[in-house]
Amino acid sequence: MNIFRLVGDLSHLLAILLLLWKIWKTRSCAGVSGKSQIMFGLVYITRYLDLFTNFISIYNTTMKAIFIAVAIATIYLIYFKFKATYDSNHDTFRMEFLIVPVGGLAFLVNHDFTALEILWTFSIYLESVAILPQLFMISKTGEAETITSHYLFALGSYRALYIVNWVYRYYFEGFFDLIAIVAGCVQTILYCDFFYLYVTKVMHGKKLSLPA
């Protein structure tokens, strides 16, 4: 465990707790893409199946359990408890356009052709694009609430910190996981445009809105 990975994990945790807290506090999930949240739920569940087969550390097990629980709670709030506030008209990204190709790719490009490994690979690939419905929704409505922007910033920071972590691990531990690295870089690139808007607008106290 190095500092980049720890701060990355904490940033990830902060992001998902922030989103859950915002929905709970405002009693509304307006502006939040339920489809991105369903895909993140799928990401955690398919990746953390090793909770049952492989013990790494208390930290690792606890974080995995929290991620799965928070993802399920968020999906529950969006699709059940605060369903009336869910902005489905603007959440029109087709999940199958991501899930089907990502599933196919996981079958073709993986470390080992076993069920658990293919599901792990699927989750890595899916995570890299799971935010697209959320970004698509923001581009459709032309704006995002400030807390939603903070959520995206924390989530993007987690990905960027993981890249630094991989550079560190490559040099100091000889660790190298090409699948995770390529998918992680793709994922981080998707946030670049958002990072730019966040720094130029939200950090200066303005709401995130896109130029018309």
């Binding site: 990975r5 994990d9 990830h12 990746r47 090793d50 492989n54 790494i56 690792n60 974080m63 995995k64 991620f67 470390h111 080992d112 490994e117 792990w120 993981y162 972590n165 531990e173 660790f175 996981d177 995770a180």
Partner: peptide
Amino acid sequence: ADLIESHDEL
């Protein structure tokens, strides 16, 4: 390869 198979990252 062992390191990769253990997937110790989150």
